[in-house]
Amino acid sequence: MKRPGSALVMVLYLLFLLIPIYWLVNMSLKTNAEITRSFTLWPHDLTFQNYRTILTDPAWYMGYVNSLIYVVMNTAISITVALPAAYAFSRYRFLGDKHLFFWLLTNRMAPPAVFALPFFQLYSSVGLFDTHIAVALAHCLFNVPLAVWILEGFMRGVPKEIDETAYIDGYSFPRFFVKIFMPLIASGIGVAAFFCFMFSWVELLLSRTLTSVNAKPIAATMTRTVSASGLDWGVLAAAGVLTLIPGGLVIWFVRNYIAKGFALGRV
């Protein structure tokens, strides 16, 4: 249905979303002198020095590398363990299934602040403190339940007859799962991976608590450098802009599934 004024509403809303981001980009292209001394709506004294600082200093760019390493690890682990579990929930009834499903969801509801300190102690005691795998495992806390939830939603939409036909044709379960079933829910896997990537990428509290030097994420680098060097606005803004890029790329790849994915496959 065509609604009058809907274009106007969308333009206003998107402006509201984009202006703060524009301001960040704007600041990242200015020199610090221009930022603090004059107030300009666009950079008069265009400079890429802030970006150069970040891309040439290992203390900065290793932050991005660390973040990407644990995010990718987390996504791989989450999807791998969630696939069989989601299949079980979507196809079978078993002892305690409903309770188990809700219990999994409760982990998505646990405030990271509650877990920060115990995680620190747990991973320190098993010698995983300040490693990428520690952060990846910690983020499984909220990503695995979410992945199971999304995948279960997508799997429910695949008729059970397909499974039965495959078994009659002599497929073993693992072969059926990889060869036939996974391609059928490829978009669901994509969406689940997108969500795991997203929530792991944006999380700061746990990743900061569990790392000190070797696996320090970019988000933590930003907060620490700010306090150390006395507010270098331009570099801070440039670092912020660079954190937008991975997310932007990922959205581009899943843009056709994003709406369905946000409904967790339940539409």
Partner: peptide, 15 residues
């Protein structure tokens, strides 16, 4: 619209 609207969701919390 979808892509632009999803932008804020993918920005790290501290950013």
């Amino acid at each position: 619209c979808l892509i632009l609207m999803a932008m804020p969701l993918l920005i790290p919390f501290n950013v």
